[in-house]
Amino acid sequence: MLNYDFKWSILWTDPYGGWILEGVATTIKLGVLCCIFSMLLGIVIGTLRITQFKPLRIFAEAYTEFFRDIPLLVQLFFWYFAVPSLLPENMRTWVYQEIPDFEFWIVVVGLSLYSSSRVAEQIRAGINSISPDQFNAALSTGFSHYQAYRYIIIPLAIRLVIPPLTTEILTIFKNTALAMTVGVLETTFMSQQVEAYTFHGLEATTAACLIYMIITLIVVGAMGRIEKRLAVPGLIIRKGANS
């Protein structure tokens, strides 16, 4: 016998509705910032992984392994608790108390670094699937290595890896939920808070589920459009991207 007193209206009752909306806004801000930073960093690191200049290549390999191999939660704790504890006492207090939204920016850093290592792997795979002679062709017209990557290889690689990048972006948005563990007031945190105040956890958690699903659908739709716009005759296009 189900004995739960559903009260969906809790979700648009003041102040709970407002909390959840704030949480959504924070989730989106966090996700978008982390997407931008992890794409930019991932493109740079992924490209460095195949340069001929060995020190940079080794740096990029170490970077990828380091950030990819450690659980994200541990990395967030590392940046939030461990790193500031290396600081002198008064600076530490200052960091925690005076930097506005310190925990928010810590998650931006942590999640971006973690995700960029995964994006780098995708970019590297994309570049590796381009024939070496394509690069030679670009060099043969007088391009520098930088220009060949900038105008030819990277634009092509990105087009080739849009489907896996879509998955990475979705993962970033889902991983923003971990931000609650260091006290960022994002969607998951707020839904938990609504539960704590109202004991209507089912409604609050359902709302959170729906919100993540909607975000996912928006990302998939947007990436499908980007993929279609960048589609190149003769390159493989993922089935269903045009829907």
């Binding site: 062709a137 634009p155 190149v232």
Partner: peptide
């Protein structure tokens, strides 16, 4: 080149 190597994009 043998396989043209034009820039497809």
């Amino acid at each position: 080149f043998q396989r043209f190597e034009l820039y497809p994009h």
